[in-house]
């Protein structure tokens, strides 16, 4: 014990228990995509591209009453310490699914029936919390593409390390800590669209952790908002 948090409550990277790593978001980074965003969250470097709404190919996949969403979360072979095979792993397949569901909760899929929407997430460099950073960036890319959404979706993780509930685990804390609990959240609707947990928490600890995660997502939302504002409304104004 005491290897990830010192007596003063400092973490391995010098942060306090409730402190987020630096987050930077850029909007509209890819020319060809209908919408795109780039995020640096800690050492995560992730690019997200959105294409659509558009014709569905092959056509029989089209859904008569709503938009058809495809989502790919993928890690580049050089994104981790030991080269990762470019083939999608079971982890990537699961994450593609939960990320799609977290975003689909916000997208007004009934507005464009029979169309397709592609969300491509490429993790160029990975750190702890890459699924959260992916959702955060994807939500900005969707707004950039003009896809109708009920709310933005902001995401971050909380966890338990050395017995402390902390915000936003980095890679080492994620690997060596006791609990990882990623959350995605729609701030204006007070709704959770992604919730996963592994590790052991008492009920009381879970309640506190969830509360901290919601506060973290609210901070992330502020960063999403200023990224979009800077991109659209600040140019020579």
């Amino acid at each position: 014990m005491g290897k990830l948090v010192d007596e003063q409550g400092r973490r391995v990277d010098g942060r306090g228990l409730n402190e987020m790593r630096p987050v930077k978001i850029e909007v509209g980074v890819l020319k060809n995509a209908d919408g795109s965003a780039y995020i640096e969250h800690g050492k995560n470097k992730i690019i997200v591209a959105v294409y659509g709404p558009k014709e569905v190919h092959p056509r029989h996949l089209a859904l008569p009453d709503r938009m058809f969403i495809r989502c790919r979360y993928h890690m580049s072979p050089f994104s981790v310490q030991e080269r990762k095979s470019p083939q999608p792993s079971r982890r990537e397949i699961e994450l593609s699914k939960v990320i799609r569901e977290a975003l689909e909760a916000a997208i007004m899929i009934e507005e464009y029936p029979r169309t397709a929407l592609d969300i491509f997430i490429e993790v160029l460099e990975s750190d702890g919390g890459s699924r959260g950073a992916s959702i955060t960036a994807a939500s900005v890319a969707l707004a950039n593409a003009g896809i109708p959404m009920r709310d933005m979706v902001a995401s971050c993780a909380v966890g338990k390390i050395d017995g402390h509930i902390v915000l936003d685990l980095n890679d080492q804390e994620d690997k060596e800590g006791e609990v990882d609990l990623p959350v995605a959240y729609m701030p204006n609707l007070n709704r959770i669209t992604l919730l996963q947990m592994d590790g052991k928490l008492l009920h009381e600890e879970f309640d506190r952790a969830l509360d901290l995660a919601v506060h973290g997502c609210e901070q992330i939302y502020g960063i999403q908002r200023s990224a979009l504002q800077d991109y659209y409304f600040k140019q020579d104004r």
Binding site: E101, E104, L189
Partner: peptide, 10 residues
């Protein structure tokens, strides 16, 4: 594990 699109309040 939360599953399916849709959402929960805290």
């Amino acid at each position: 594990q939360k599953g399916e699109p849709g959402s929960w309040t805290p």
